[in-house]
């Protein structure tokens, strides 16, 4: 059965914990992978392939050490060009920033679906997980 991989990119262990709890409440059955910054997220994506029927949802914090969210988005855009399995992948920015510049900058990437300001409601999370599940490689092809 097809599953969704959810890559949770956030440097705050507390935020990852809260997000996990909210995802559980949202009935999320995705496989959740936690990483602490953009660099670790890229490393994980380079080391792993997303099966053709599976969805990929990246929940991305913006303000992180080592590699922040915007830098990650640029790198991910390039990696996505080379990797068919990543093309159905979508990103939801999950940040405590409600600064208009940040919303504008992340919105410029076509694969960034949403900009969620921390913490989103359970319904909003459930909604985005459901949408990501329908957006698989097969649905794309």
């Amino acid at each position: 059965m097809a599953t969704t991989t959810l890559l949770l990119v956030d440097d705050s262990d507390v935020d990852r914990y809260i997000t996990q709890r909210l995802l559980t409440k949202a009935g999320c059955d995705a496989r959740i992978v936690e990483v602490e910054n953009g660099r670790e997220a890229l490393d994980w994506l380079r080391d792993n392939r997303i099966p053709a029927d599976d969805g990929l949802l990246i929940l991305l914090d913006l303000n992180m050490p080592v590699m922040g969210g915007f830098e990650f988005l640029l790198e991910f855009a390039a990696l996505r060009e080379q990797r068919v399995d990543l093309q159905p992948g979508v990103v939801a920015v999950l940040s405590s920033s409600n600064h208009p510049d940040d919303l504008h900058r992340s919105g410029a990437f076509p694969f960034v679906w949403r900009h969620l300001v921390k913490m989103p409601t359970v319904d909003a999370l459930a909604d985005i997980v459901r949408q990501a599940r329908t957006c698989t490689g097969r649905a794309y092809a």
Binding site: I18, S97, M119
Partner: peptide, 8 residues
């Protein structure tokens, strides 16, 4: 904001 959101 970040810690206030966490506390909440």
């Amino acid at each position: 904001r970040a810690p206030a959101i966490q506390l909440h």
